[in-house]
Design a protein around this nucleic acid. Structure first.
Length: 183
DNA sequence: CTTAAGTGTCTTT
DNA sequence: AAAGACACTTAAG
């Protein structure tokens, strides 16, 4: 049984529920209302027998946990700095299929701040030109908001076809990052 | 602009 | 094992 803690992080962009372990590795980052997020996280992790999810307490805080929380808060306060502050940030995918994990890893490693890509382009880069739709599925299934930059993936026509945490937030994040890129 | 068809994966029965 | 859903894309009215 592996112990995980959840913390509530407030920021300008959105309020978030962050799940991490005692080494500061991120498992989950969801946006929205606190009460709803906790229920959702409990439900998600409840299906995983190997993890125990408990509320984060001040007395549990160590250096690595504090560091990750600070960086996540910074990333949410200033998404423009996300790609910088996320460097060296550890994360782990405990949900999702092999393909979905491949997509998420690709997004983190290859789609930087200020950039956008398309579902079909990501598919192509993964060597599977015909799985654009599955790339969309992977984005929808993503459990680590903002850190896995699903918001940077748009349709080939440039439309913002969907965002798990609200299209307005996607639009807002992209505008913020684009603006930041010019400085 | 709207439909329709092709597409591969994932979820639900 | 099968059906239906899907944050896709392209082509054709």
């Amino acid at each position: 049984m592996f112990q995980l803690y959840y913390w509530y992080v407030q920021s300008k962009v959105a309020d978030a529920l962050l799940v991490l372990d005692e080494s500061g590795t991120i498992y989950y980052l969801s946006l929205g209302r606190w009460d709803l997020l906790v229920d959702l996280a409990k439900k998600d992790f409840g299906r995983k027998r190997e993890y125990d999810l408990s509320p984060g307490k001040e007395r549990f805080k160590n250096k690595m946990i504090t560091r990750t929380i600070t960086h996540v808060k910074q990333a949410l306060d200033h998404p423009l700095k996300a790609s910088v502050s996320c460097k060296g940030l550890k994360y782990k995918f405990v949900f999702g299929t092999a393909l979905q994990k491949d997509v998420w890893t690709f997004l983190i490693e290859r789609v930087g701040c200020g950039e956008t890509s398309t579902y079909s382009e990501v598919a192509k880069q993964l060597g599977r030109p015909c799985i654009a739709r599955q790339v969309g599925q992977a984005c929808e299934a993503n459990k680590i908001a903002v850190i896995v930059p699903c918001h940077r993936i748009v349709s080939v026509s440039g439309d913002l076809t969907g965002y798990r945490w609200g299209l307005n937030l996607k639009k807002y994040l992209l505008a913020l990052e684009k603006h930041a890129d010019q400085t």
